[in-house]
C-alpha cells in the first residue's frame, strides 16, 4: 500500500506541476476510522494528502460529469486527473460512451484493486465500542479499541460488490499502478440474484417492500451513482409530476423501480449506491438482476470497451422475443375463419 501511495503521490505531483491536468481527484484520510474521503488537488496543493488503502470506497467518477461539463459556468475546458479502481474505470468508460466526459481531457491513474473493506460490517462486530486506530496488511485489518484489539480477515469483510468483482484492474488508464504484493483475488460468483429468484413471487415482493420501505428519499443512491447525471431527475420533476415527494410506500417503490431500471445496461455494479445509503438498503439484489439479464440477453458487459454501443442504443434483428404476448386463437366473437 505504501509503495502504491508513493507512486501515486509522485505521479500526481508531476502531472500537476507539468500542467497536464487542472485538477486531480484522489482519496485522502478520512476523519472517521475505516474511511477515506475524496480529495481535490490543484497545482500547489500538498499531494502528500493522497492515500491508497482498503478503505477507498467512493466511486470518484461521480464528480466528473459536473466538473467537466461543457456547459459549466466558466466555460473553460477542464482537464482532470483521477484515481480509478477497476469499478471506477468502468464507470468512466460508461460516461465517455455517453458523451458526458472526454477521454482526451482525462488523465487516469489506474490501480489494481484488491477489494474495499466494508466499514459498516466491521463496526457491527464491535458491540458499539469505538475504534481508536486502524492498521492493515495484505490479508487483514486490525482495529484498536479502548481495551483490546481485533483482527479481521479482509476477504470476509470486503464489500459484496468487491467479492463478486471480476474486473478489478482497470482496462482504461494512462498509468497503471499495481499495489504491492498484488495477487488476483478469488472472484466469488454472485448468488444473490439466483437465490432471490428462487423465492416465491409474494416473498420477493415482500422483500422488495421491506428493503425499499426504509427509504427516506435522501437521494444519496442517486447522487453517489456516476450514471445519474441528469440535471433534472424524474423524481423531482414537476412538469409532468411522475411521483410525489413523500415517503409513502407507492412513491418509494416507484422511485426505486425506475431509478434502478434507468441503470439497465449501464450499471457497472460498483456498489456506490449501497455504500451511500444511510438506511442500509441492499439495492444490489435488484440492480444485479439487470446486470445479469443484460449479460445473458445481449452479451454485454458495461464499462469494458469504449467502442461497443450500449445495449439499449442498438439492436439485433434476431433479438429474443419470447416475452411477447401471443393471442389464444379462436376466442373472438365475430371472427369467421
Amino acid at each position: 500500500m505504501k509503495q502504491a501511495e508513493y507512486e501515486i503521490t509522485n505521479t500526481v505531483e508531476k502531472i500537476l506541476t507539468d500542467n497536464k491536468v487542472d485538477l486531480f481527484i484522489g482519496y485522502e484520510k478520512g476523519t472517521l476510522p475505516l474511511r477515506t474521503s475524496p480529495c481535490f488537488l490543484s497545482k500547489g496543493d500538498d499531494t502528500s494528502r493522497l492515500v491508497w488503502n482498503s478503505f477507498c470506497s467512493n466511486n470518484l467518477a461521480v464528480y466528473l460529469p459536473r466538473i467537466m461539463s461543457t456547459t459549466n459556468e466558466n466555460k473553460k475546458r477542464k482537464r482532470v486527473g483521477i484515481i480509478c479502481k477497476g469499478c471506477d474505470s468502468r464507470s468512466l468508460v460508461g460516461l465517455i460512451k455517453e458523451n458526458q466526459i472526454k477521454r482526451d481531457d482525462l488523465f487516469i491513474i489506474g490501480l489494481s484493486c484488491t477489494g474495499i473493506v466494508d466499514s459498516k460490517k466491521v463496526l457491527s462486530q464491535l458491540n458499539g465500542n469505538e475504534i481508536i486506530d486502524v492498521s492493515e496488511d495484505t490479508e487483514s485489518i486490525t482495529v484498536k479499541l479502548k481495551d483490546t484489539e481485533k483482527t479481521f480477515d479482509k476477504n470476509k469483510y470486503l464489500y459484496e460488490s468487491c467479492r463478486n468483482c471480476a474486473y478489478s484492474t482497470p482496462k482504461v488508464y494512462d498509468v497503471l499502478i499495481r499495489t504491492a504484493k498484488f495477487s488476483p483475488q478469488v472472484v466469488i460468483p454472485d448468488t444473490s440474484v439466483v437465490k432471490f429468484m428462487n423465492k416465491t413471487r409474494e416473498e420477493r415482493w415482500k422483500i422488495f417492500e421491506m428493503e425499499v420501505g426504509r427509504c427516506i428519499r435522501c437521494y444519496a443512491c442517486r447522487n453517489a451513482c456516476p450514471n445519474c447525471y441528469c440535471k433534472e431527475c424524474f423524481a423531482e420533476q414537476t412538469q409532468p409530476r411522475w411521483l410525489c415527494v413523500t415517503n409513502d410506500l407507492p412513491d418509494l417503490l416507484f422511485y426505486h423501480t425506475v431509478r434502478i431500471f434507468h441503470q439497465a445496461g449501464r450499471c457497472v455494479d460498483c456498489g456506490a449506491c449501497v455504500r451511500a445509503c444511510p438506511m442500509d438498503i441492499d439495492l444490489r439484489i435488484f440492480t444485479r438482476m439487470l446486470v445479469d439479464e443484460v449479460k445473458g440477453r445481449f452479451d454485454y458487459d458495461p464499462g469494458l470497451s469504449i467502442e461497443e454501443p450500449q445495449p439499449l442504443a442498438t439492436f439485433k434483428i434476431d433479438d429474443k422475443q419470447e416475452f411477447m404476448t401471443e393471442p389464444e386463437v379462436n376466442n373472438v366473437k365475430g371472427y369467421k375463419k
Binding site: F40, Y63, I216, C218, Y219, N223, A224, P278
Partner: peptide, 16 residues
C-alpha cells in the same frame, strides 16, 4: 470555492 467539491448534493446531512 474549495469546500464544496466533495459534496454529492444528497440530503443525508439535512434529513438526519
Amino acid at each position: 470555492n474549495r469546500i464544496y467539491e466533495k459534496c454529492l448534493g444528497c440530503g443525508i446531512c439535512t434529513y438526519l
